[in-house]
Design a protein around this nucleic acid. Structure first.
Lengths: 339, 339
DNA sequence: TTGTACGCGTTATCAT
DNA sequence: ATGATAACGCGTACAA
């Protein structure tokens, strides 16, 4: 009861008075092993709860059947949901998954990458931190022949790589177009941080939707913010106050930002609140708890993005052939109505 | 560029024309190795980006420096936040962390446990699924001498084990007492599923707070629900409608439930809404987006719970001595005001 | 039908 | 100061 002897093939072999390889073969159903012997071995293995040691296996087959995921933050439902898509498919195909959070900190991201390197993962799926401009820690993987999929966040600096991203352009086009079709002539766009490429992709969707409906673009209907509440309030002041013609609809970069904006307008008793319609990116689950939810959400389908990422990754892992062309997969967004 | 030779000690040794053990010792700063040799070896190792193979190390030292976490769902901020506490402390002490989601499904939980067993983790921290009544898959760990900490969810059926839990009794007492001190004579309690022990622990806190203030208990001020919206609406009808003296304050099992309740009352224009005060368990981050937030939240401090769990686990791992007494750690809750 | 021997990458012990 | 060897647990080619 006190000093545990680990249950290994060797241990089983000694107990059964056969050789180690007989035990191994029996457990792996080798046809050359006597049925009775197999029975004895399997019986004893079950009784003692034998489980093959993964480290030993990895060492032997030179493969870990493990893939790594690095992402900024599990508190962000976008990423948490993406894991669901990855995990499902990975497990079905015999792969395990190690998740690491960088907390949007480059140093943590580098540490995680090195840890995963030591663990000899077979491939990596990563949503880079917002400060990742140097890719040395990730290039190590490619140099070793380990495939990387960049997903969820666009590594603008790192052009030649596999990417799986939400089609944020299409999502923003769809939302803007939807608002126009509902009769809005004055649709505003509230963008996110300007360093993030998605901010500009979405802007393109916005402006193309306007163009396609022959609505003239008006610079004063566009403002930018980040995840700081005060900055969002300022942007909203710009867009909605001290002007003759405030917008009648708004498309926002992220629902977190949108909710700050809506709360600000409502608590300041913005008089045209009831005639103004709002759409943001995210489709967060707690929208059901809001007394006055936005008109709709742009659902980015993170699960599907995750699934696309893992599918591509496993293809690259299996394909021991020469590296295939770099892929860029875009996952379409949908509009989800709340009212 | 095409057929990668893995960078191992052997590979380095061949390149440098020294023995494998010299390389190993040089990299590990053995005092017996010539300074110049060390330099040469380290130089080459850095150049070729050598990283020791974790599987080989694990095999050799019979320890993985990895701990497993099994929890129901990363979409639940309570668990996601608990990871933060675990990760920080674990990494500081040289341990890695593997996270697995059971999605509250016993079969998935068993699969995860077996996977972690194969991976030869050094210990496990688990929040059991709501269906976990049989503990065979977890007893395997204890039989192997691997410590388990049950956390976040109370395994009522499995008495002799280490537990780290939120002190839900104390939290509910505090909230109820706070409401009483604010002048409320009629405080209601909306409990969660009756199978969950926390439901009853919280009830005890509620009723003890009443007693300590000499407020008579009234059965009609207590109702139960689960995470289904319709059931919550029914419970709220019971508590607030068709009666002379509805409660003037409510303590709810979980904020998800509380928000459903508040939205229901508000959208039905419950006339005394403005004089009624609400408190729920959770302190969810999106409360800042609500136009009418509850009075306060009971903050369960999941990070601290995670940290307590990992601290105890590492103590048990290091302590190769005979198993110490089973511990039950309670993490106190705090009241966080929103108005 | 079963057993022996080797190698995966690493460290530690014991030569040299 | 350096090198040879064994061991960790496993699968498999080859020998018996």
């Amino acid at each position: 009861m006190s000093t545990k002897t680990p249950v290994t093939l060797k241990f089983l072999a000694q107990k059964l008075k056969v050789s180690i390889s007989t035990v191994s073969k029996a457990l792996n159903d080798y046809p050359t092993i006597n049925a009775y012997t197999k029975e004895r071995v399997k019986q004893m293995a079950a009784e003692l709860h034998f489980t093959p040691n993964k480290s030993a296996l990895n060492l032997q087959i030179q493969k870990s059947y493990t893939i790594g995921i690095i992402l900024p933050d599990l508190m962000d439902h976008y990423f948490t949901r993406s894991i669901f898509g990855i995990e499902q498919y990975a497990r079905q195909h015999g792969y395990n998954v190690i998740i690491g959070q960088s907390y949007d900190d480059l140093k943590k991201e580098v540490d995680l990458a090195n840890m995963l390197l030591k663990s000899r993962i077979d491939g990596l799926i990563i949503a880079i931190s917002k400060n990742t401009e140097n890719f040395d820690h990730l290039d190590l993987f490619e140099n070793l022949g380990l495939p990387i999929i960049y997903y969820g966040r666009n590594p603008s600096f790192n052009l030649s790589c596999h990417k799986v991203l939400s089609n944020t352009y299409q999502g923003c086009y769809k939302a803007t177009d939807f608002l126009i079709k509902r009769g809005h002539k004055r649709v505003a766009y509230l963008g996110g941080p300007k360093m993030i490429s998605f901010t500009h992709d979405r802007f393109k969707g916005y402006i193309n939707a306007l163009n396609d409906s022959n609505i003239p673009f008006e610079a004063s209907l566009v403002a930018y913010t980040d995840f700081d509440q005060a900055n969002t309030h300022n942007a909203i002041k710009e867009l909605f106050y001290n002007r003759e013609n405030p917008p009648t609809a708004l498309v926002a970069f992220k629902e977190q930002i949108l909710f700050d904006a809506m709360k600000y307008l409502r608590s300041n008793k913005y008089e045209k609140m009831d005639q103004t319609e709002f759409i943001g990116f995210g489709n967060m689950p707690f929208i059901r708890y809001l007394d006055n939810p936005p008109l709709a959400s742009i659902e980015e389908n993170p699960e599907s993005m995750g699934e696309n990422a893992i599918k591509l990754l496993l293809k690259l892992i299996d394909q021991k052939t020469e590296a295939i062309e770099y892929q860029e997969i875009m996952v379409d967004c949908e509009l989800v109505l709340h009212q």
